[in-house]
Simulated scan of single mutants.
Amino acid sequence: MNPLNDWINGIRSLLAPAMICCLICSKNGRPSAGLPGICTGCEAGIPWIRQPRCQKCGRHTGCPDCNRSGQSAPILYNRSAVAYTPVMRELLGRYKYRGHERLAPLLGLMLDRAYIQLKAYIDHPQNFTQVQSRQLPEHHFLRKKRANPASLWHADLLVPVPVSDSRLMERGFNQAERLADVLSRVRRIPQLPLLVRTHHTGKQSFKSRAERIADMKYAFAANSDNSVKAQFNSWLSQVKAPGRPLQILIIDDIYTTGSTIRACAEAVQLMCASHRRDAEIYSLTWARS
């Protein structure tokens, strides 16, 4: 045996990345450098939405919804991290329904990609036409962005979509709140549970678009918990530049028709208006169907 070769092989084994059991494929493989718990092969296969076809809702395919006449738009823009493929559906199902809580950091960091994409879109004024600019309210961030290109957008607050009490008892956690937890830590943006569900709406995946929209009407209201009210009032008093609109992000796991996001945005706007504050509402979701 050659001692030199043994020494070189020993050094290589120390420098080589350790193998992990991947959270997606359950096989041993080299770990991803950017996403915890998955192998490089599964990382390469993630269906990231890098160039959404619809700049408003972030859809990666043709979008008829945002062009519907009379469509209300309480959110300005949505961005989603991944396309809701069968592999992504299985991954989310394991987290939401089968208690694989080790997936929480992974899904949260994946959602952060959507935040990066939204921020990049807003921070580059060349993305917005003069026609779009003329349609914006006087105090809209993008109007100020044109006047001062050096100003950078950031979210002031994260608001997770709430689940019903029965769903919370069934799962033991709110997946949107867990996603917001990770994003809050990474981006240092506070999050508050400003909303509650007023009634249980059942699983939306089995319903038509019209049924989802009808279900979500008045499905959310301001959280009446005194502790949450106090936290919100304290947060409002600390927000810098009180004359500008609040920049608020609604957080959820999936965007399908957008009915849930829109209903939440309307409730948040009403809540802010009751405090005499304007709010510009955006949304981030982990997946886009």
Score class of each variant (00 low, 15 high):
A147I: 10
G58D: 04
A219W: 02
Q130N: 15
F128S: 03
L23Q: 12
I11F: 13
K27D: 10
D65R: 15
Y77F: 10
H100P: 01
E266G: 07
C39P: 03
T257F: 02
I281N: 03
E177N: 11
A120G: 13
E177T: 12
Q191F: 10
P17V: 13
L35C: 06
I38K: 04
L23W: 11
R68L: 15
T198A: 06
S80I: 04
F173Y: 13
L179Y: 01
R50P: 02
N148C: 13
P242R: 13
T285C: 09
I261Q: 05
R262V: 03
T85H: 04
A263D: 02
I122P: 00
V182H: 08
E43V: 05
E101N: 11
P242S: 06
D156G: 05
S184H: 05
S274V: 01
Q55D: 09
Q191R: 15
K240W: 05
A230F: 13
R94P: 04
Q175M: 00
R12Q: 14
C42M: 01
R12D: 11
L107V: 05
S72W: 11
A221L: 08
T198Q: 14
H275N: 06
P47R: 07
Q117G: 06
P52M: 11
V182E: 08
Q175G: 05
R146N: 12
V196M: 13
A265F: 00
K203C: 07
Y218V: 11
I75Y: 08
T129G: 09
R98D: 06
I46A: 08
K229L: 11
L142Y: 01
A150D: 10
I11G: 13
S32F: 06
P105T: 04
L236Y: 01
V186G: 10
R212C: 10
L92N: 02
P149H: 02
Q191V: 08
P149W: 00
A150N: 11
Q238I: 07
N9Y: 12
A81D: 05
V239W: 04
M110W: 05
I281H: 00
S289P: 08
Q269S: 00
S259E: 07
A147Q: 11
L158C: 03
V239P: 01
S234T: 14
A44I: 08
L15V: 15
Y115A: 08
